[in-house]
């Protein structure tokens, strides 16, 4: 698929921007190219997020991939200061796992090629 690496960096951009803008969180990001997939792992620290907020965020991010939209709209990801396109990340992901623990939010995103 075309622009694959750029799409990965846009997904990272969108999630990172969201946490920087809303929580100004220290972030660790690991991007692992695997055979047939990319694994994106995020750890955000010092995130003041209550359970309700976490569940809402999870609902926005956990969605199944929509190839018929991602090829068209992927360029919009990561373009705004307040990061409003988390739904796009969901549309570009095959699976998203999220965990919240002691002020840390961990997100694991898999995108198959």
């Amino acid at each position: 698929m075309k622009h694959e690496k750029k799409k990965i960096s846009k997904m990272v951009d969108e999630i990172l921007t969201y946490f920087l803008f809303h929580y100004n969180s220290p972030a660790e990001i690991k991007v692992t190219p695997k055979s047939g997939a990319y694994l994106l792992e995020f750890t955000f620290s010092k995130v003041e997020m209550d359970k309700k907020e976490f569940e809402k965020l999870k609902n926005r991010l956990v969605s199944k991939r929509v190839p018929e939209l991602e090829d068209y709209y992927w360029q919009l990801a990561g373009e705004l200061d307040d990061s409003d396109e988390l739904m796009l990340v969901a549309m570009m992901s095959d699976s998203v796992e999220m965990k919240q623990d002691a002020g840390q939010v961990k997100i694991k995103v898999t995108r198959k090629l």
């Binding site: 090829d71 068209y72 709209y73 360029q75 919009l76």
Partner: peptide, 10 residues
């Protein structure tokens, strides 16, 4: 169409 999105940012 994909490219033009950037002109108006959606």
């Amino acid at each position: 169409a994909s490219h033009m999105l950037r002109f108006h940012d959606g």
